[in-house]
Simulated assay, not measured.
Amino acid sequence: MRNFTVEFNPERNVTLEATVFDLPSPDEQPTSLESPRPAVIICPGGGYEFLSQREADPVAAGFLAKGFDTFVLRYSIREHAIGLNPLIDAARAVRWVRLHAADLGVDPTRIAFLGFSAGGHVSGMIGTRWDEPSLHEAERAEYEALTARGLDANVGLLDVSPRPDAIVPCYAVFNFDWVDDRTDEISFSDSIAAVTDQTPPTFLWTTNEDNVVPPTQSLRFATALSDAGVPFEYHHFARGEHGLSTATPVANADRVSLPENAHAWLDLCASWLRATWGR
């Protein structure tokens, strides 16, 4: 197993934390490890104010156990969560994993982008806005500026696509039309209206007891996917509060009780991804 962190933008503290299986050794062939492997990029939630640890490491561990390489994206938050910044971070993460797929042992055609709450908002944006010309122009300017300052992680990224091969929004925000006092400072923040037939296959879930992000956000996104003919799977669990992460004790040590079946989402998601990708 290899663990390392890639520095994307030090000015905004944007990094990608990778945990990947070792590449198979020729001396050990045939190997029981799948190669190349599917990958999941994980965006923790936190209302663009912090990054929830319960929605980072426990989720990565869960997908590692399913044979996925994992990447936790520490994206732009607080004063940096404006304009195109979060979307640039998401696009850069997909591009970086795809560009370096061979060295990582990742299948470049099986990269999922998963996010919780505000991180789910990021996943909705990259799933619906990945082909925006203004995004690509902003990416080019940022990557060239960072490369000129000696940061080489952004070199060559524009040579590969930023479109994920699937998105996984978890109790996600998809727009802000339900918030009375928010000044919308993030560009392309409405993912519901932006769904097209080019939106990647989607697995999404929420709970009916979520009192932070209305569960209707996920329902409306699922409806938009259905209208556009996008393959999707949608789970609406009856019980469970906001921020469940894996909905297991390891991610919820501060909670007295957990819903009886919401933890099933991770197994369902991993199986759905493999079935959707055909392997």
Rank of each mutant, 00 (worst) to 15 (best):
G229Y: 09
F8H: 05
H80R: 12
S226H: 12
R92F: 09
F232V: 07
L244C: 02
S32I: 11
P38Y: 00
A145C: 01
K66Y: 14
R279T: 10
V256W: 14
D190E: 01
R95K: 13
Q217T: 12
T216I: 11
L258A: 03
G243I: 02
L64A: 12
R78T: 15
F50P: 04
G124L: 08
A193P: 09
H263C: 07
F203N: 02
R12E: 01
F174A: 09
R37K: 08
A56R: 10
A247K: 05
R92I: 15
D152G: 09
V230S: 07
A61M: 13
R279L: 05
E233C: 08
R274I: 01
P108T: 06
T196A: 05
V195T: 00
I126K: 00
P58F: 01
A262S: 11
I41C: 13
Y234E: 03
T207G: 10
L273E: 05
F221K: 09
L73W: 11
G46T: 06
N85A: 15
L258G: 03
E241I: 04
G45F: 04
G120E: 07
I167C: 03
E28P: 04
E79P: 09
S187L: 13
G156W: 06
S32R: 14
S117F: 01
T199H: 10
A102Y: 04
C43T: 06
L135S: 01
L273T: 02
I186P: 00
R220G: 06
D197A: 15
A141L: 08
R74H: 15
L266R: 15
I77H: 06
H121D: 02
R163N: 02
H242A: 00
A224D: 11
L51A: 04
V94Q: 08
S226M: 07
Q29W: 13
P200W: 11
G45K: 03
F232L: 13
H136P: 00
A228C: 04
F203D: 01
P36M: 01
N261R: 08
W205D: 05
T19Y: 14
L16Y: 07
V160R: 07
N208H: 10
L16M: 13
K66C: 05
H263N: 10
E55V: 01
E11G: 09
A238V: 02
N154W: 01
A118F: 02
S189M: 08
F71D: 10
L135N: 01
S189V: 10
A65I: 08
F8P: 03
E132Y: 01
P108V: 03
K66Q: 15
H100F: 11
L258M: 07
D22H: 11
I192L: 12
G83M: 10
P30R: 05
W178V: 13
W265A: 09
A251G: 12
T276A: 00
R12I: 00
A91G: 12
S226K: 14
E17C: 07
T128G: 02
D181T: 13
A118G: 01
V179R: 05
T202Q: 04
D190H: 05
A275N: 13
D227P: 00
Y234T: 14
L135W: 00
H100W: 10
L219Q: 10
P259L: 04
S189C: 08
R95S: 10
D197L: 09
T206Q: 09
R2A: 07
F113T: 05
C269K: 03
D27I: 15
C269T: 14
H242M: 00
